[in-house]
Amino acid sequence: MNKKIQFQDIGNKDFKETWEHQEDLFNGILDIKIKNRREDAGLETPNYFLFVEHPHVYTLGKSGDIDNLLLSEEQLKEKEVTFYKINRGGDITYHGPGQIVGYPILDLDNFFTDIHKYLRFLEEMVILTLAEYDISATRSEGETGVWLDAGTPFARKICAMGVRASRWVTMHGFALNVNADLGYFDHIIPCGIKGKAVTSLHVELGLEKVNEEEVKKKLLKHFTTLFEAEFV
């Protein structure tokens, strides 16, 4: 089992370009797995972890409802926001500046073959990171992602998640609001959940700006511990 993960921080990049890059890495792993199965080749499968920040974009998961996007095509153009229907689970979400987006592209055969556990580990990574800022975050029953004050009238989501998996290979991932402009969430029903607010780390801490590089380091630290992995 290969627990080494090739790490790439690709900076600010268009969603579609990043999606295509993910697909290339994802399909490369699948090709090796298929070859191993057909030819008993015994080849090691690689793992990847991407950090990226996207320009303003709304993405709709394959089970999502287009009615959860509250803007017309014209309004999207006016606001310079792109929109894509994509092949992850979940409903609609927003990505944009001030948000740390992480895409682990892993062969779970190298770790554990359990998608439920995989999602819980991603949530735990974020929960442990936020705890370092004295933010008490939790899961919300039946709702993937990370929340503050879950189960109360003040519940608000700070990190959205949506993944795709095939033959135990993952893609897509999580989006943690660190310095996000929350106004962009007003134009969607985030994750298709009505009446629930969205927040960002800088808002919760009462700061103008949080050091995003510092947050990334904490996320990676907790990821390596949980997955017993090593970044290269």
Rank of each mutant, 00 (worst) to 15 (best):
M1L: 10
I10F: 06
I10H: 12
F15E: 00
E17L: 11
E17A: 14
T18E: 05
T18L: 00
T18Q: 02
E23L: 13
E23Y: 12
D24K: 15
L25N: 03
F26P: 02
N27F: 08
G28E: 08
I29P: 00
K33H: 09
K33R: 15
I34P: 04
R37Q: 15
R37T: 13
R38F: 10
L43R: 15
T45N: 13
P46R: 07
V52T: 12
P55G: 06
V57W: 01
Y58M: 02
K62L: 14
N68F: 04
L69W: 05
L69I: 11
E74C: 04
L76Q: 08
K77P: 08
G90E: 05
G98Y: 04
L108S: 07
D109M: 03
N110D: 08
F111N: 09
H116G: 12
F121V: 05
L122Y: 00
A131Y: 00
R139G: 13
S140P: 08
E143S: 13
L148H: 02
A150H: 00
A150C: 04
A155Q: 13
I158F: 05
G162P: 00
R167N: 15
V169I: 14
L176S: 05
N177H: 09
A180W: 00
H187V: 01
I188C: 07
P190H: 10
I193D: 09
K196L: 10
T199P: 01
L201R: 02
K216D: 03
K216E: 07
L220H: 09
K221S: 12
H222N: 14
F223H: 07
V232K: 13
V232Q: 12
